[in-house]
Design a protein around this nucleic acid. Structure first.
Lengths: 178, 178
DNA sequence: GGTGCCATGTAACGAGTTACATGATTGG
DNA sequence: CCAATCATGTAACTCGTTACATGGCACC
């Protein structure tokens, strides 16, 4: 049920087609809620049926038509309402930790390699975040509230990645001395 | 497919019934891979069918019989193999960040309240982790490798919660000055 | 001429959640 | 006597993933 709210939240920024949304879920929004285009199209149909969003076909030159969705008043009201309700902590699903947990079953270098790979992935993502920070959030004090809230989500991403990196190092040091 | 590996990893520690596993998924293992008992029983049947685990009924006095599972050589080999394969980064699903993202739609105190609630939840969990650290990982240097690897997963949990707490504070400070 | 982007989907499957069900025993 | 714990499940459902499908246009 929460993908729908991520879509609604995204639509408060700009009206979007399914395709546009899919791209945003590969970037900004996708950093805290991932979804494929198939799932998005499905959810859009549901949201339109319940009247939380409204879509209208837009003809384009040299490109396929697209259906652009915007959030309705009902949708915005429902989103507001949902925001006020207590959020649950996210479910933990950390593949790497399952591997570490059973790390004693394999030679140490295999685990070190896993940690290094994990570190590389988080480093990459951190760089993406840093780039976004520098290009879109330069002048925060003059920005709208909407931008400021978006910045907080980016900041969470940055902190999270930094934290992963330092745990990876901590873990590798720990393994090297045992 | 990954719940199965979490179960296997858990069974390398001790043989377990479905019920025991369900409890462990509410504690230690559950901190990085969550699952309900229904899901666990389903998965156990699959794992037994494919011969990765073996179960045997154990009669008990004053309690229902239970079926205790242990990991087979085939299962252990498959787990080892899987550990060596590159782990993906976990999918992001952070309800609280969806709420923050759309935070401009509601009065500021509602968002502050959400952050405070989130902080409370993470604080609670951190305390649980700290307690586990103090009771089970006191004498690390004299512990087995298995214990040391488990400690690394706990350490990840501790760092993660600390990181959430500091972001919550950072976010609330940020919101109080805008 | 091939690759990649734009744009939207269907179909089949697997993973995960929620509700419901049963029945014995232990402890207050 | 009531609640909690032990122990295992079925059924219905929603959520999410993977594979496949289509067709035009732009760019090199």
């Amino acid at each position: 049920m929460s993908l729908s709210y991520a879509i609604l939240a995204s639509l408060t920024e700009t009206d979007c087609s399914g395709y546009d949304l899919a791209k945003r879920f590969d970037a900004s929004v996708g950093f805290f809620w991932s979804a494929t285009h198939q799932q998005i199209y499905k959810e859009l149909r549901k949201l339109e049926e319940s009247g939380w969003i409204a879509g209208s076909s837009v003809a384009q030159e040299g490109r396929p038509d697209k259906k652009v969705f915007s959030i309705t008043d009902v949708g915005r009201e429902n989103l507001r309402n949902w925001i006020g309700k207590t959020a649950e902590m996210s479910a933990n699903k950390e593949e790497i930790l399952v591997k570490i947990f059973a790390g004693h079953l394999v030679p140490k270098p295999i685990i070190i390699e896993q940690l290094q790979e994990q570190k590389r992935l988080h480093q990459e993502r951190l760089e993406v975040y840093r780039t976004i920070e520098n290009s879109y959030f330069q002048n925060l004090s003059n920005s709208s509230d909407a931008i400021k809230f978006q910045y907080l989500t980016l900041l969470r991403g940055i902190r999270m990645e930094e934290d992963w990196l330092s745990w990876c190092d901590e873990a590798m040091n720990f393994l090297n001395i045992i």
